[in-house]
């Protein structure tokens, strides 16, 4: 019984994480975040390499 409850809890957590993950992904795309990331990623990031 306890095992079954644990499994149900795990399945709920998974489903919630998947739904939220997809939701966040869609919101991010609609907000134009990939473009913002591309803009940053195609130039040498001076902060990342310890210069800026």
């Amino acid at each position: 019984m306890r095992m079954k409850r644990k499994q149900i809890a795990i399945m709920i957590l998974r489903a919630a994480a998947i739904v939220l993950g997809i939701l966040f992904l869609v919101i991010g795309i609609l907000r134009g975040e990939p473009g913002e990331i591309l803009f940053k990623a195609v130039k040498i990031c001076l902060e990342c390499i310890g210069i800026g």
Partner: peptide, 28 residues
């Protein structure tokens, strides 16, 4: 792109506090 770099790049820009796009990818 690096997800940690991307998270910070979006958050450090004007107007956005968090990158839902990166968060969604990482969660999935």
């Amino acid at each position: 792109s690096c997800p940690i770099g991307a998270l910070q790049a979006v958050a450090s820009g004007t107007g956005r506090q968090i990158s839902f796009y990166v968060l969604g990818i990482l969660m999935l």
